[in-house]
Design a binder for these strands. Structure first.
Lengths: 233, 233
DNA sequence: CCGTTTCCTAACGAACCCCTAACGCCCGGC
DNA sequence: GCCGGGCGTTAGGGGTTCGTTAGGAAACGG
């Protein structure tokens, strides 16, 4: 269980790192909004503890940016105790709001309550569709042909994209989410290289690359992996 | 959206019923633990607001009983402000904890935060009507036909409109609100393209597009999503 | 140092989506 | 019965997004 703690007070940062680390959580820290956002993109924490009053990028702005593509639980820890502050943070997408000073036991309990709700990432390590078999942990792909199994090679970037699509079968993955996960939040200027990699993936995986059956495009929205058997409703 | 309010103070009960009812929530009340539990079993609320200090069956005991078989979001509203009380309630399965006296705006925001993440009482992460099943987060729509499930594709603008309508089932959404949410305040010159998208949505979703049953027009006012009448439990 | 692999930029036709415009229908007011 | 407003429907142009190809920069490994 990985937790990102974003706060501009190094003392609080250190105290929380020690306390939460002792509970078995893996801790990542950030001291301002920009680094917090970068850490979320690159580290994939299971929960984010966010201070509102941070330099470089306000906590509320961080919430907006994250919620545009990611649904990781966000726990706001702030010195502002006004109701309007809480309402704004919660309505922008935060899941809980704790005011400083806080009880460490209560904080831990709220962390447990939030992570308990997390979608149990039902990782099926092997995905098959058509004549293709993808082994995600082993990073291997084989195509079953009449002449026997045949190995398919993918570049690192191709793997990242394919993994994102296969991880949520049937669900649409927004272009924004793909860019954020693969290249980082800053590289959001869409000059169109996603199209290139999708073309590459289709060329390597689709039975008929000119008419995609598994890696589908949703114009204006993103891409979707359509499995053979419809996912459990 | 149905909310159960369980509290032994009739004054609080009445105030909350009025306040939440005005926000469009359907309200069910209980004055002690036993009736609260019965109401959860029979009424299937989408969220439970629970007081801890109730006669007949303590709030903590109610949480235990509910969590043994149901995952409905539970928001504890209690006069006990001690950290140990919060920890115990949260660890037994409550999702949030607010102490009296509370700000009504904060309470509403926390209700929104909880219901936002829990798609309809944990049973269905989707909205269904007629032979249509809509999965909002996955941006997926399937039509159940005799020949099997069939995928329906929507454009981004169609999604935005449908999402607004489905978010408040049965309630009227003014044309103003639709224009503001989808296009922004500047595009208020109603030349009538909303009609186009409604026609598209009906063509794709209604069993008989010429006689709408779910996406209804309120002349001069706006549009309304009319859900199926729930079968008598 | 060189060859290979991978990544990115640029450009162009095609497909798709959004919006304008126009017409017909229904309904209530005069 | 006439008229006008609001709504549903259809057709088509303009702009955006997508697929594809080609080629050069950058990174990697020997």
């Amino acid at each position: 269980m990985k937790i990102l703690i974003a706060d501009d007070d190094p003392q609080i940062l250190r105290a929380l790192r020690i306390t939460l680390g002792a509970r078995g959580y893996e801790i990542v820290t950030a001291h301002d909004g920009r680094t917090a956002l970068a850490a979320i993109v690159e580290q994939h924490p299971d929960l984010v503890m966010l201070d509102l009053g941070m330099p470089n990028l306000d906590g509320l702005a961080v919430i907006d940016s994250v919620r545009a593509w990611n649904s990781v639980p966000i726990l706001v820890v702030s010195g502002r105790s006004g109701a309007s502050d809480k309402v704004e943070a919660l309505d922008r997408g935060a899941d809980d709001y704790v005011t400083k000073p806080f009880s460490i036991d209560e904080l831990l309990a709220r962390i447990r309550a939030l992570t308990r709700r997390m979608p149990t990432s039902g990782d099926e390590p092997v995905v098959t569709f058509g004549d293709i078999t993808v082994d995600l942990p082993a990073k291997t792909i084989t195509r079953a042909t009449a002449a026997g199994p045949e190995h398919v090679r993918l570049t690192p970037t191709e793997w990242q994209i394919l993994e994102l699509l296969l991880r949520t079968p049937g669900k649409l993955v927004s272009r924004q989410a793909l860019y954020a996960e693969v290249w980082g939040q800053h590289k959001m200027t869409d000059t169109g290289y996603l199209r290139l990699y999708l073309a590459q993936l289709r060329k390597k995986l689709e039975p008929d690359p000119s008419r995609p059956r598994y890696l589908l495009t949703e114009a204006g929205m993103g891409y979707r992996f359509a499995p053979d058997a419809p996912p459990p409703a």
